[in-house]
Nucleic acid binder design. Structure first.
Lengths: 108, 108
DNA sequence: TATAGTACTATGCAACACAAAGTACTAATC
DNA sequence: GATTAGTACTTTGTGTTGCATAGTACTATA
């Protein structure tokens, strides 16, 4: 029981929401996602990001296309499906409810 | 990949923070904790609460005493140890950082 | 050709919320 | 007194995901 572990636990379920938020704003490939999240003080590791993107794709929330890169290997650009768009709305509501509940409970 | 599962994942690590918050405000027994959390729209199940309280006790964040009840079986009243108090401070900082990061990323 | 940088894939583990089943104590009812 | 109901706590097993690690593949550069 230490703070690093608890932080990791706290991130579960939330990273999914964050990733969809980044992609929802515009087609993005994994490094884009990493950069945007890092800019918001959310560091995500490839061991988490790639399987998560794969799960989201398999669940039909995301779709992707390969784009040749002019400075390295090809990149996988992801975008939201309509199903992913709807799911995003649910995630947003769920997160807001949770955050508000925690705020209400801990700030009294 | 559905909203109920994601909600459950989102709660991981957070419930610990909430429980310590309730107990920090004053000695409490499990049903007290359930009621206070329910009032804040955070429902916690016994299968989660009791093992969590046990983990916190085993990690020396909590201590407890038995109190006879005048309307049923005895109750286990929990309170924070100094170590638990310090850990709470870390949890609060960690949660705030995470919540702020998510807000920054998703509300732009 | 070998190396470096970039991009992506696969696998195994630890931890916790959830679900369910069970034990124990006390008061009320028969 | 025996049984039932309500309250309180304990135990166990499962599924999921972030983390950690190792690996493959593509392109540019030396």
């Amino acid at each position: 029981m230490n703070i690093e572990n608890t932080q990791s636990q706290m991130r579960k379920g939330i990273l999914e929401f964050c990733i969809l938020s980044v992609i929802r704003r515009g087609e993005a490939y994994p490094s884009d996602i990493v950069e945007e999240m890092k800019a918001a003080n959310l560091n995500i590791l490839e061991g988490t990001l790639y399987p998560l993107l794969t799960r989201l794709k398999n669940a039909e929330m995301l779709t992707y296309r390969w784009v040749e890169s002019n400075s390295g290997p090809p990149r996988k650009y992801f975008s939201l499906t309509p199903k992913g768009e709807a799911f995003y709305g649910e995630l947003e509501a769920t997160w807001n409810e949770l955050a508000n509940a925690v705020h209400a409970l801990t700030k009294k």
